[in-house]
Design a protein around this nucleic acid. Structure first.
Lengths: 349, 349
DNA sequence: ATGAAAGCGCTAACAA
DNA sequence: TTGTTAGCGCTTTCAT
C-alpha cells in the first residue's frame, strides 16, 4: 500500500477565512500577531479552522509580497570533508536558532559549478550567502552582491570582493608550527602545501616560509612540496616522494589534517616511526586528530566557531539592510581568528 | 569601504520586457524555451535586455504560480557526524545534478526540533523530504505527507509511516560481526549499543543477539551495554566500565564507529593492546576507520550510496506525482542495502 | 509570433 | 475590530 491520499489541494488562507467566517485579511493579521488587535472570539474560530484544515501559510507567497525569503545560501566545497562539516555545524548553530533556513550546495571548488550555484541561489532569492568555497571569484558573486544579496566569506579571503571574511590565522599558525618543530631540533623540514589558489593554503605556505626564515632555515633544508588536492591520498603520495628521496625530511608540516593523515600513512607503510623517524603536524584540528592511534599535532582555529561568527555577521548585515531601507552601511571587515598550536604525539611532544 | 551600491530594485520581468520592447508574456516564453515559437530577432533583443539588466527570474514568483518549488528538504541529526556527512554527500551527488535545491536542517534527534523543522519545510513548500533523523515520528511528518509532500527515510525505518526507507542490513551486518569475532575464538563478547529508539541501533543490537545465539553464546558471556548517545565519549565511558569489571570482555562490538573509537581510547588509556588484549569492531565504516593508526574493523553499508538511492527515489516520487496529476501511485518499499564486514587490524585479522 | 489579462497565496494600506 | 483592494513577479490560456 502506498500513501494513497487523494492529496486534496493544500488549504489556503482563503479556506481558513471561509471556514472561520472572516476575511482573509483577518487571518493574515492573526499570523502577523502583535501588530493588530483581533477579538478573542475571532482568534478562537481562526485557530480552530487552521487546525481542522491543517493549514500552513505559504512562505512562497509571503516571500513574494514581503520581498523577504528568510533563507540564506551556504556554499561549500564538499560535504564529506570534516572541515566543512564543522563549519556548517557552526553555521547551523546560529541559523537553527532563527527562523531562517539554509539552502546548501557544494561546488567541489569548480568555478563553473560555483557560478551555477550562486546563480541558482540568486533566483531563489536568498537574502545572503555564506561562501566557504571560493577559489577563483566568479563574476556571479559580484552580481549577487550588486543585486542586494549580502555575502560573507568563511575560511577564504578575496582580493577583489569587498566583503566580510572570517579566516583563521593561517600565517601565524604555520609560523608557530615551524617554530615548534625547530624547537624540537628539526632542520630538515618539509611542507606539503595544498592548492595555492585556495587562500588558506597559500597563507599556510607563506607562514611556513616566514617561519623558516625566522628559524634560520634556508631552501636547501626547508622544502615545499605542492599537492594538487588536499586529500589523504595526495598527502600520502607527496610524503612518499619526500621520504624516498636522497635526503628525506625529519619533519613534515602538512597543509591540513587530511594531508597529514596521508603523510602518516606513507610513514606507516614504510615502517617509519612517528615521531621517532618523522615528526608530523597538520592544520585545522579536525576531530580525528585527537582520536586514539592518531594523536596528530595540529593547529586549531576553531572551525565551528568560524562558522558561527560568519553566520552571525551575515544575519547582522541582513537585518541592518532592512532596518536601513536597503542601504549597505556596514564596513567590510576581515576577521582573523586566533590559531592555537595543539601539541599531541606526532610532533614529538 | 563597504559594498555601497544604492542597491537598485532587482530587475523584474517587466523591466526586461520594457527594455526589449516586448510584452512580459514574451519574455516569460523566452525562458520556458521549447514550448513556444519566438522570432530570432526578438530573442536577440530579450537576451540583450536580460544581460544589461542582469536579470534573474524569481523562483519565488515562479513557484507561486507553478506550484512547484523545486526544492527538497533534508533533515539530519547533526552535521559534525561523519555518517550524516556521508549521507548528505550522497544526496548532493544526485540533487546537485538536477535543478532542485536542498534545504537542510539538523534536529539533534530532538522530536520537538524535528516537528519545527518539518513544519518550516512545509511552509517553504518543499516538494519532498529526506528524513535521516527520525527517532520518534512526530505527527508533523504525517501531516506533511497528507499535504502532498513526498517523504523518504534514510537509515531509519518507521512502523507507522508508510513511506520508502533505505537502510543498511544492520541485523545481518551485526550477525556477521559476531560470527567473525567468535571465529577468532572470542567467547566473552560485549556490545556497546546505541540509543534503542534509533532503529539502526536497535537492529544492530538485535543482530548481536541473534549472532550470539547462532554462535552458542549466552547472556553470561555475551553482554550488552547501553549508551544514551552514540558518541566517542559515551563509548569510552561504557567500554571503561566493561573493561574495569571483574570479567572483562575480550572483544567489543560497538554500535558504530564513533563509539568504537571511544572503546579504542578506553583501551589505550588502560594500556590494553588492540587486538591482543581486546578486539574491537565498529559499524558504518566511516572514512576514519581506514586511517593510519586506527585500522578499525567495521561494517560497510555504503552510506553515501544510501544517500544517493534515497535521493533518487524521492525525485522519482516527485516526478511521478506531477506526471499523474497529484496522485501517489508508487508502492512504499523498504530497501535493505547489503552490509559488508571490513576486516582490518582491530578485530584481530 | 506576440500580447492582454487572469490569477497563484499572501500582505498592507485604507476604509468602514 | 474587521473587511476591501491593490499588488508582489511570474505563467498560462485565449486572442490577435
Amino acid at each position: 500500500m502506498s500513501n494513497r491520499f487523494p492529496t486534496e489541494r493544500r488549504a489556503t488562507i482563503r479556506d481558513v477565512a471561509a471556514k472561520a467566517g472572516v476575511s482573509i485579511a483577518t487571518v493574515s493579521k492573526y499570523f502577523n500577531k502583535g501588530d493588530y488587535y483581533i477579538a478573542d472570539a475571532t482568534k478562537q474560530r481562526i485557530a480552530e479552522a487552521i487546525l481542522q484544515l491543517d493549514y500552513e501559510p505559504s512562505a512562497t507567497a509571503r516571500g513574494l509580497v514581503s520581498r523577504r525569503s528568510r533563507a540564506i545560501g551556504v556554499v561549500i566545497a564538499s560535504f564529506d570533508n570534516p572541515f566543512y562539516a564543522q563549519l556548517i555545524a557552526g553555521v547551523d548553530d546560529v541559523i537553527g536558532a532563527t527562523d531562517f533556513t539554509m539552502v546548501v550546495a557544494s561546488t567541489a571548488d569548480d568555478p563553473k559549478a560555483q557560478a551555477e550555484v550562486v546563480q541558482s541561489m540568486r533566483q531563489r532569492q536568498v537574502e545572503g550567502m555564506l561562501l566557504a568555497s571560493l577559489t577563483s571569484e566568479s563574476p556571479e558573486v559580484a552580481k549577487a552582491l550588486r543585486s542586494g544579496i549580502d555575502v560573507v566569506l568563511a575560511s577564504r579571503v578575496s582580493a577583489d570582493l569587498n566583503v566580510d571574511a572570517f579566516v583563521g590565522d593561517n600565517v601565524g599558525g604555520a609560523m608557530e608550527v615551524v617554530r615548534h618543530l625547530a624547537g624540537h631540533g628539526h632542520r630538515r623540514i618539509a611542507h606539503v602545501a595544498g592548492p595555492q589558489n585556495v587562500t588558506s593554503f597559500s597563507m599556510r605556505a607563506e607562514g611556513f616560509r616566514r617561519g623558516c626564515d625566522e628559524a634560520g632555515l634556508d631552501a636547501t633544508t626547508a622544502t615545499i612540496s605542492l599537492v594538487s588536492e588536499a586529500s589523504v591520498d595526495a598527502g600520502e603520495a607527496a610524503a612518499g616522494a619526500l621520504l624516498d628521496s636522497a635526503e628525506p625530511p625529519t619533519a613534515i608540516f602538512a597543509a591540513n589534517d587530511r594531508v597529514a593523515l596521508g603523510v602518516l600513512r606513507a610513514a606507516e607503510r614504510r615502517g617509519l616511526g612517528v615521531p621517532g623517524d618523522l615528526a608530523v603536524v597538520g592544520f585545522d584540528n579536525i576531530w580525528v586528530a585527537d582520536m586514539p592511534g592518531v594523536h596528530l599535532s595540529s593547529v586549531d582555529a576553531d572551525t565551528r566557531d568560524t562558522g558561527r561568527q560568519a553566520a552571525r555577521r551575515l544575519l547582522e548585515r541582513i537585518e541592518r539592510r532592512w532596518a536601513d531601507g536597503g542601504a549597505d552601511v556596514l564596513e567590510a571587515e576581515q576577521h582573523t581568528l586566533p590559531a592555537r598550536f595543539i601539541a599531541r604525539h606526532t610532533c614529538g611532544c
